[in-house]
Each structure stands twice: as C-alpha cells, then as structure tokens.
Computed example of a mutant assay.
Amino acid sequence: MDNKRYFSIGEVSRLKNVTIKALRYYHNIGLLIPAYTNPENGYRYYTINQFIYLDIIKICKQSNVSVKEIKALFAKADTNCLKFYLEQKNEEIHKEIKKLEQLNKQIEILKTAIHSSEDELMNNGFNIQTFKDRYFLSLPTQDGELNEIKSFDKLDEKLGELAVQTFQYGLIYSCHHDIGKSVMYFV
C-alpha cells in the first residue's frame, strides 16, 4: 500500500451506509473495484475518491437504474455525460412528484365527496351548498341520453387536460320563485 488514506470495506460500509455484501458484489461485477486488495488475505480497501462513485451508485439504484446502465456511465468516464444523466433523472423525479401530488389532491377530493355523500344520505338525499370560489365548465349539448353522455365525455377529457378531477357530478337547477318552477340547467 502507498501513503494514501485507505478505508477498509467495513469502514466504507459504515461511512456510506452500504452493505459489505453490496461492496463485494460491485467489486465482483467490475462496477466499483477497490483501490487496493491485500494479496495475502484478500481484504479490500477504498480511497475517499471512490466515495463519489458509491453516492452515484446509490442514487442510481434508488432511481431504478440497472447495474448495466451504471457500468456504462462509469465506462464513459465523462463528467458532462454523468451530469446530464443525473439532470434527466432529477426531471423524472420532479414529474413523478407532480403526479403523486395530483393523485393526493384527487384522493382528498374523493374523500370529501364520499363524506359529503354520506351526509346527504343522512339528510334524505338533499344537499344545499353555497360556493364562494367555484368554477364550472359548461358544454352545450342536445337532448337525448346519448348526447348527454358524449358531452360528459368531452367535459371529462377537458378536465383531464386541465389536470383537475373533482369526481363530483350533480344537478344544477335555477329556482324561479315568482313562477313557482325549477328549471334544470345541468345534470
């Protein structure tokens, strides 16, 4: 061994939170070869410069990157290529976070709708609400059940584009007190 500071496989395992088994596996497949292996006892030693590779391996593994892909990245030995690859992974993660946040919102809306439906059932099926800030999408339709279904499909499609899902459908009536009549506006 030369004068560099070497870390035993056990020290690396503790410092970088990687199992010894994983380090041995990385060595056996040529992904991360120790800086020095004692020829007498086979003990593996690493330098601090190799820690960055372990960090990259861990991040890639958490991002479901195969060992083969990681080896290909290391084989290129191109810092710009690695930075670009990590930026792509970062974008993918942000997209996934957005999808999960949207799913979380949809679940909360659905839970609220279910709770509201339960309350309506307890009140003989009626629910009267006043909304302060509420937006409605409207779409003209022709009479007939099939045309109404097509209109619902178009509205659902538009809501999907806007990434807004409410899961709430209902009836909107206009009450004309002076003539004692209610007119259905929306189903």
Rank of each mutant, 00 (worst) to 15 (best):
N3S: 15
K4T: 12
R5H: 14
Y6D: 01
F7A: 07
S8P: 00
S8E: 04
G10E: 09
E11I: 14
L23K: 03
N28E: 11
I33K: 05
A35V: 06
P39M: 12
P39G: 13
E40M: 11
G42E: 15
N49H: 01
F51G: 02
I52M: 14
L54S: 00
I59Q: 03
K61N: 07
S63W: 04
S63E: 01
K71A: 07
A72Y: 02
L73N: 00
A77Y: 14
N80W: 13
Y85N: 01
E87D: 10
E87G: 02
N90F: 11
N90S: 12
E96V: 00
I97Q: 00
K99L: 08
E101W: 00
Q102F: 05
N104Y: 06
I107E: 08
I109T: 06
K111Q: 09
S117T: 13
D119H: 10
D119G: 08
E120N: 07
F126V: 04
Q129C: 05
K132F: 11
D133H: 06
R134C: 12
Y135Q: 07
Y135K: 10
F136D: 06
L137M: 10
L139R: 12
T141C: 15
Q142L: 12
D143A: 13
E145G: 05
L146Y: 15
N147P: 01
N147Q: 12
I149A: 10
S151H: 04
D153N: 12
K154I: 05
L155F: 07
D156T: 09
E157C: 10
K158T: 05
E161L: 14
V164M: 15
Q165P: 01
F167P: 00
F167W: 03
Q168L: 04
G170D: 03
G170A: 03
I172N: 07
Y173W: 08
S174W: 04
C175S: 06
H177P: 02
K181I: 15
K181A: 14
V183I: 10
Y185R: 07
Y185H: 09
